[in-house]
Deep mutational scan, measured.
Amino acid sequence: KKYKIKVYVKDKKTKKWKKIKEIEVDTKEEALEAIKKLPPNYEVKIVP
């Protein structure tokens, strides 16, 4: 079972969220580790 991490950042001009990358991992633990490495201003969604 794979997890997709969708990473969004808020556009300063439009104030809208835009997706900047998608990370695919195998476990939820890996997903949480990957999220920890991202800057705090990123919004993250984990999709099972």
Rank of each mutant, 00 (worst) to 15 (best):
1 K>N: 09
2 K>V: 07
2 K>M: 09
2 K>F: 09
2 K>Y: 09
3 Y>M: 06
3 Y>C: 05
3 Y>G: 00
4 K>M: 13
4 K>H: 07
4 K>R: 12
4 K>I: 13
4 K>F: 07
4 K>D: 01
5 I>G: 00
5 I>R: 00
5 I>Y: 06
5 I>K: 01
6 K>Q: 12
6 K>S: 13
6 K>I: 15
6 K>T: 13
6 K>C: 06
7 V>L: 06
8 Y>H: 00
8 Y>A: 00
8 Y>W: 06
8 Y>F: 07
8 Y>M: 02
9 V>M: 12
9 V>D: 04
9 V>N: 04
9 V>I: 12
9 V>H: 06
10 K>Q: 13
10 K>W: 15
10 K>T: 04
10 K>R: 14
11 D>R: 05
11 D>H: 09
11 D>Q: 05
11 D>M: 06
12 K>Y: 10
12 K>L: 12
13 K>C: 09
14 T>K: 07
14 T>A: 05
15 K>N: 12
15 K>C: 12
15 K>D: 08
15 K>M: 10
16 K>M: 07
16 K>D: 03
16 K>L: 07
17 W>K: 03
17 W>V: 02
18 K>S: 05
18 K>E: 04
18 K>L: 10
18 K>C: 06
19 K>L: 15
19 K>N: 03
19 K>H: 04
19 K>Q: 11
19 K>T: 03
20 I>T: 03
20 I>M: 05
20 I>F: 06
20 I>Q: 03
20 I>W: 09
20 I>H: 03
21 K>H: 11
21 K>W: 13
21 K>V: 10
22 E>L: 04
22 E>K: 01
22 E>A: 03
22 E>R: 01
23 I>G: 01
23 I>P: 00
23 I>D: 02
24 E>F: 14
24 E>V: 13
24 E>Q: 09
25 V>L: 05
25 V>I: 06
25 V>T: 06
25 V>P: 00
25 V>R: 02
25 V>N: 00
26 D>T: 08
26 D>E: 11
26 D>A: 10
26 D>K: 08
26 D>L: 08
27 T>A: 02
27 T>D: 05
27 T>V: 02
27 T>H: 03
27 T>N: 08
27 T>K: 02
28 K>V: 14
28 K>F: 15
28 K>L: 15
29 E>N: 06
29 E>L: 10
29 E>G: 06
29 E>R: 09
29 E>C: 11
30 E>N: 04
30 E>V: 03
30 E>F: 03
30 E>T: 03
31 A>R: 01
31 A>G: 04
31 A>F: 08
31 A>Y: 07
31 A>E: 02
31 A>C: 10
32 L>A: 09
32 L>V: 08
32 L>K: 07
32 L>F: 13
33 E>N: 10
33 E>W: 03
33 E>A: 11
33 E>I: 10
33 E>M: 08
33 E>Q: 13
35 I>K: 04
35 I>R: 04
35 I>P: 00
35 I>Y: 03
35 I>E: 01
36 K>F: 05
36 K>G: 10
36 K>I: 07
36 K>V: 05
36 K>S: 13
37 K>G: 11
37 K>P: 03
38 L>Q: 03
38 L>S: 01
38 L>T: 02
38 L>D: 00
39 P>H: 07
39 P>E: 06
39 P>V: 05
39 P>I: 07
39 P>A: 09
39 P>W: 12
40 P>Y: 08
40 P>I: 09
41 N>P: 06
41 N>A: 09
41 N>T: 11
42 Y>F: 12
42 Y>R: 10
42 Y>W: 13
43 E>R: 15
43 E>M: 15
43 E>D: 09
43 E>I: 15
44 V>H: 08
44 V>T: 08
44 V>E: 01
44 V>F: 13
45 K>G: 03
45 K>P: 01
45 K>S: 07
45 K>Y: 13
45 K>L: 15
46 I>Y: 04
46 I>W: 08
46 I>R: 02
46 I>N: 01
47 V>F: 12
47 V>D: 05
47 V>Q: 07
48 P>A: 13
48 P>H: 12
48 P>M: 14
